[in-house]
Amino acid sequence: MFESLSERLETAFKQVKGQGRITDLNVAATVKEIRKALVDADVNYKIAKEFTDKVKDKATGEKVINAISPGQLMVKIVKDELAGLMGGEASELVLKGNPAVILIAGLQGSGKTTFSGKLANYLKLKKGKSPLLVAADIYRPAAIDQLKVLGGQIGVDVYSEPDTKDAVQIARNAVKEAHSKNKNVVIIDTAGRLAVDEAMMAEVAAIKDAVQPQEILFVVDSMTGQDAVNTAKVFNDRLDFGGVVLTKLDGDTRGGAALSIRYIVDKPIKFVSSGEKLDTLDVFYPERMAQRILGMGDITTLVEKA
């Protein structure tokens, strides 16, 4: 993929080989190729446009080093810009409060329950916490069982009320339970919901109001396409979440949704999930994600040599 993008860029630059600088004229064709690469990676159409326009301004006038072709220089500029956009300030999980309450939300099937298990495992093993998992999904068949199985695998207690048909109440009771059982982190797994489902969006907002979580994480499937912006925006408007979790990165998707979401809500990606087993939780590397979105191998070395 890197080869092909790089080759396409070289072709776009062909007429201007030998020129020392990237100019308005020669950058136009390249920008089009980069935009196509981004959209192929599922970056939102409008965002890809805005982003490449910015890159164009940045690139114009750049001096092409002898050892590196204009195409490669453009790729480097794009990649650095992408990584910068997705990186920024270090973004730790917020664990203030006793117990610290973490609310997990997102679309159906995005990986919330699995991630809840992974996070509990991580906090227990790596941060020495004693977490309580909360089954606040009262809709999905066997949602409670699923969380209990995961809790069992990692030795973390799961709070549930199989007969309660009120997720807000379950969440509230769970926090009380955490107090009395000396649990210092509460992780609330909620049902999947669509952004257009008003009743369900109101429910998760009500859970937030009731338990005042220190941290809210929006879980999103890395294979998501153009709609990622709509969803992220509505969830953020409703919940003002603190961070994003990108799941199923063990697949071969380019993951452009990551860029779209960052662009639209400007919230950091705090974790990536890359497997079905509970030990497959990683921190986020903006640089790697940028390369992945562009479908390229590592060209930093190549550029540094120059």
Partner: peptide, 11 residues
């Protein structure tokens, strides 16, 4: 296929 999946659905 999940209707919200992007181009990865082709793969």
């Amino acid at each position: 296929l999940d209707g919200s999946t992007g181009q990865n659905a082709v793969e």
